[in-house]
Amino acid sequence: MEWLAQQLAPGLIYPTAGAILFALGLYGLIRRHHLVLRILALNIMGSGVFMVLLGIAARGEGPPDPVAQALTLTGIVVAVSATAFALALVVRLTRITGQAVMLPGPPDDHAPVDDISREEHAPSAEYDREHRE
């Protein structure tokens, strides 16, 4: 029993689970097509990396390594900003192509992409008037 508890110490099983999470996210990233699902898969991969970092930081006696924890904290904030930007790109792509998946090529070179988005999606005239001043 003692031996088993030692083998399953948090410093060992959490990094292992982190690696599995990373692989799982990678698998999802390759197989799924919808871009929001791909963003979720990337976030799960990132969480796996954080788990590896924090799991290794918690190894051994004594308090955990604060540098690894600070790096993870930085990573979480960077991940949320990147996710927000990626989601904004997905919304924009859907607005142009009507689908939230990666198309094999450019949608249509001759489509007046910019005009479509401006006309249809600029804030309405009333809105502009209300907020003019």
């Binding site: 690696a19 990678l26 197989r31 930081a57």
Partner: peptide, 26 residues
């Protein structure tokens, strides 16, 4: 996809298991 994920995950797990214990920067 399965092969790729298994190889990458397997490499990571192996590397983590054989990593020597270090004190870190604490």
């Amino acid at each position: 996809a399965l092969t790729f994920a298994l190889v990458v995950g397997g490499l990571m797990v192996t590397a983590l298991w054989h990593q020597p214990d270090a004190v870190g920067l604490e």
